[in-house]
Design a protein around this nucleic acid. Structure first.
Length: 799
RNA sequence: GCCCGGGUGGCGAAAUGGUAGACGCAAGGGACUUAAAAUCCCUCGAGGUCAAACUCAUACCGGUUCGAGUCCGGUCCCGGGCACCA
């Protein structure tokens, strides 16, 4: 009888006692395989039924690779800084660490009940000072290399709560908690210069074995676009401004320019007559949150500056406007406007009665014409198409010193500070003028101080501003400093954790360089698609920085990436408390066993697609495990197991091993499981079960269902764990059938199926096919015009 | 609006351009049982028929091909991401 509770307890203990999955990272004698999950945030709710999906997938690959003789590094850790713990601490007047540590313990117990073959000796949490010491070290190195700087950045500030809020905490301009108004307010922030790596982050995507859609998303996010930077002189002023355009070919049609409200020249150049109106406009647009600015998308507002610029291609004087449809953060914060060939410019020009010059043949009576065509009104570029005109006009601009070919990126620098307590302290000291210097590397980590209260002050100062003086004030080389009181965002700890698993206890270095060289890159990384951009881009950025420092010697951290789909509720909707369709993995493990849960999630459909939960489906998976187990159970079918091969299972077994080899590598577990079911069905029909075949089956099966796999392995007479047995091989010759079924089609439509020898020639097959009464009836006395024959598949008669 | 996915039985799904629906779930029938559970056997896309033959069927329309779920063009719907990006 299959007693899953006894079996799962027994093997969980065995693996722990024997340290079965310990990986000696110093052992270079075997080829390495590094397979990793995105580590979880240990929330108070405990494990979600979606977690085991990706974890089981990496576990299957880990177990297969071990049997194939690889030294497998398969670690797990905790992304443990985060907002919920801080809010819990504030609400309960307790320290966030206690709450977080308790959650970690709960998560770990749940994960261990799932039979995942993690090497727990590599475990750490991002909140461990021994870990964040090195997170701070990387930041200090970035500061040293001019990649971290301070800037004033508008943030969502809620005066009522006295807190800065994340975008997702703001709904329609109100705080999510409490519904208080939120304003945009510039605040001093640390920023990381990720844009300095934009070109490399874009270029190196090409060599990666990642989902195409994720590469696409990262490329769009980085948003490289090549164009021309054009210098516009200003009438009556020494100053000039630059615009960026991808449509330099339309320059003859440029009838005005627009500067972003944030553009530094605006306040400087505004004519006296316009000053009042401009100042009002700037103030209004600065109050607009991103959300509000988007909501106003339909209406393009703007005010004339009262100054004129000179179009460098034809010397014409054109007016300059300020408009908040131009963003200060992209390009040069200024655009040239070509109403006839840009939709936004068209709308703006119509509204403000600005002249329009058409420079491409096409209909511009109703809207802008943005397609390719023949240039007109463009002097030397007349008659050219877009790409010819681009080249000609660019060459002219360069020759007169007014143009430069540049690549622009949408990517913006990374705002890296948070006004929170529960994050890594930024290892910076500020002198009395507020000038930053990095904390001595030898004094890291800067440990979070104990405090009585974790809420921010009403004036928006971070919680750490209220830290004890002994922490806050530092004297160094006879100078007085205060510590930076901002902390790092949650992304920080997850940007380099894959490096630390390789050498988690090293207190001299981030990790041993020899080990890093051997183990990197990560061979397989599985996690949700919601991290397609931010986390995966940040980690790549840090990795490239560490490459430049000489810490790592490969360009990319994650060679192969895969996204598991979502497990939806039984009704096909996203699981949530409010929908009442949440499934708790603990209940499933209790009622069916972890093996059933793992099998169900792998069989339900392709790994990368979202799939609904099914109570009857989990029951079906449980039944299949019982069906497998009975084959080796002394009370039932054990006596059928034989050491001589009757040949009955030759085809079925070899087909299974072949399929498992191919599909496990492709992460197509559902189809392998189907093949396993075919094999088991054949076993029930067979008179005798050849022992090596049953053993090979159990090895493959144990990757998906490890607890019962170990138990069956033991019943087959083994007294060591199945984990390091050698992976089964298959015999191709057993897969060749003597006779095959061939479809007989007439005019492409299948009319009959005949059985012929595998090597039958077209002539033989044709003879047999034509002698079939069905086929003969269809052909009748129509002459055969053509015959198409595909060996072993089909013969098609055209009549 | 743009970008990326996806649309196949009652359901989850299979299918190197070559017999559409493997495998499983659910359902129905039968065997075993005093009975139930479990297990085993059979049926199971729609129409059609006593049974067959046959016809229709992979969101929709068209194309390429001896042959299309699969390739190409267009349309509709669903999911995800991004958004005044010059």
């Amino acid at each position: 009888m299959y007693d899953y509770q006894r079996i799962e307890q027994k093997w969980r203990k065995y693996w722990e006692d024997h340290k079965t999955f310990y990986c000696d990272t110093h052992d270079f004698s075997k080829p390495k395989y590094y397979v990793m999950d995105m580590f979880p945030y240990p929330s108070g709710q405990g494990l979600h039924v979606g977690h085991p999906e990706g974890y089981t997938a990496t576990d299957i690959v880990s177990r297969m690779k071990r049997m194939q003789g690889y030294n497998v590094l398969h670690p797990m850790g905790w992304d443990a800084f985060g907002l919920p713990a801080e809010q819990f601490a504030i609400a309960n007047n307790t320290h966030p660490e206690g709450f977080t540590r308790a959650n970690i313990a709960h998560f770990k117990d749940q994960i261990q009940s799932l039979g995942l073959s993690y090497d727990w000796s590599k475990e750490f949490a991002t909140i461990d000072p021994s870990y964040y010491k090195w997170t701070q070290w990387i930041f200090a190195k970035m500061f040293e290399n001019d990649l971290a700087y301070v800037d004033n950045i508008p943030v969502n500030y809620c005066p009522e709560l006295g807190t800065v809020l994340a975008n997702e905490e703001v709904i329609d301009g109100k705080s999510e908690r409490g519904g208080f108004p939120v304003i945009r307010m510039p605040m001093r922030q640390w920023v990381l210069k990720i844009t300095a790596y934009a070109d490399r982050l874009e270029k190196d995507l090409d060599g990666l074995d990642w989902p195409k859609s994720t590469i696409e998303m990262q490329k769009n996010w980085i948003g490289a676009s090549s164009g021309v930077e054009i210098t516009f002189d200003i009438v009556g002023h020494k100053e000039s401004f630059k615009v960026f355009t991808t449509r330099v070919d339309t320059l003859f049609g440029c009838t005005y320019c627009v500067l972003a409200p944030e553009h530094p020249l605006v306040k400087k150049l505004v004519s006296e007559g316009q000053r009042k109106e401009i100042e009002k406009y700037i103030e209004e647009s600065s109050k607009k949150s991103d959300l509000l600015r988007t909501a106003l998308a339909k209406e393009k507002t703007g005010v004339p500056l009262g100054i004129f610029a000179i179009n460098p291609i034809n010397g014409k004087e054109i007016p300059v406007y300020v408009g908040d449809y131009v963003l200060g953060s992209y390009g040069s914060g200024a655009v040239m406007a070509v109403p006839c060939h840009d939709e936004r410019d068209y709308e703006f020009a119509k509204k403000h009665n600005i002249p329009m010059i058409q420079v491409l043949e096409g209909d511009v009576s109703e809207k802008a014409f943005v397609d390719d065509g023949k240039h007109i009104n463009s002097d030397f570029a007349n008659g050219m198409n877009i790409s010819e005109a681009k080249k000609a006009i660019t060459d002219r601009l360069i020759s007169i010193g007014k143009g430069k070919v540049v690549t622009n990126y949408k990517l913006r620098d990374w705002i890296f500070s948070r006004q929170r307590y529960w994050g890594e302290p930024i290892p910076i000291l500020l002198d009395e003028e507020g000038k930053p210097r990095a904390e001595d590397l030898s004094l890291l980590p800067v440990v979070l101080p104990e405090m009585d209260e974790y809420s921010p002050s009403k004036d928006g100062k971070p919680p750490l501003a209220k830290a004890p003086k002994s922490w806050l004030e530092v004297e160094k080389d006879g100078k007085k400093y205060t510590r930076e009181t901002n902390t790092m965002p949650q992304w920080a700890g997850s940007s380099w954790y894959y490096l630390r698993y390789i050498d988690p206890n090293n207190d001299k270095e981030l990790a041993d360089p020899a080990l890093l060289k051997h183990w990197l890159p990560v061979d397989l990384y599985i996690g949700g698609q919601e991290h397609a951009v931010l986390h995966l881009l940040y980690a790549r950025f840090w990795h490239k920085f560490l490459y430049d420092l000489g810490v790592v010697d490969c360009l990319e951290p994650f060679k192969r990436l895969y996204h598991q789909g979502m497990i939806l509720g039984a009704n096909g909707e996203k699981m949530s408390k409010s929908r009442g369709n949440v499934v708790n993995p603990d209940d499933i493990v209790r009622d069916y066993g972890a093996d059933s849960l793992r099998l169900f999630e792998m069989f339900a459909g392709p790994l990368n697609e979202s799939k609904p939960w099914s109570d009857t489906g989990i029951n079906g998976s449980h039944r299949f495990i019982e069906r497998c187990y009975r084959l080796v159970d002394e009370e039932t079918y054990f006596s059928r197991i034989s050491t001589t091969n009757s040949g009955e299972l030759d085809y079925s077994y070899n087909a299974l091993v072949k399929k498992a080899n191919e599909d496990f590598d492709n992460l197509s577990f559902n189809t392998t499981i189907a093949q396993m079911m075919v094999f088991i069905n054949d076993c029930y029909k067979a008179k005798s079960l050849y022992k090596p075949y049953i053993e090979g089956f159990v090895q493959i099966f144990s990757c998906i269902c490890p607890f019962v796999g170990e138990e069956m392995w033991e019943k087959l007479g083994h007294n060591e764990s199945i984990a390091y047995s050698s992976w089964p091989t298959f015999d191709e010759s057993k897969l060749v059938l003597e006779s095959v079924n061939i479809a007989v089609a007439i005019n492409g439509k299948t009319r009959d199926v005949i059985s012929v020898s595998k090597d039958a020639s077209e002539e033989e097959v044709s003879k047999i096919a034509l002698s079939s009464p069905k086929v003969a009836a269809f052909i009748g006395d129509h002459p055969l015009r053509k015959t198409i024959f595909v060996k072993g598949k089909i013969i098609n008669f055209i009549i």
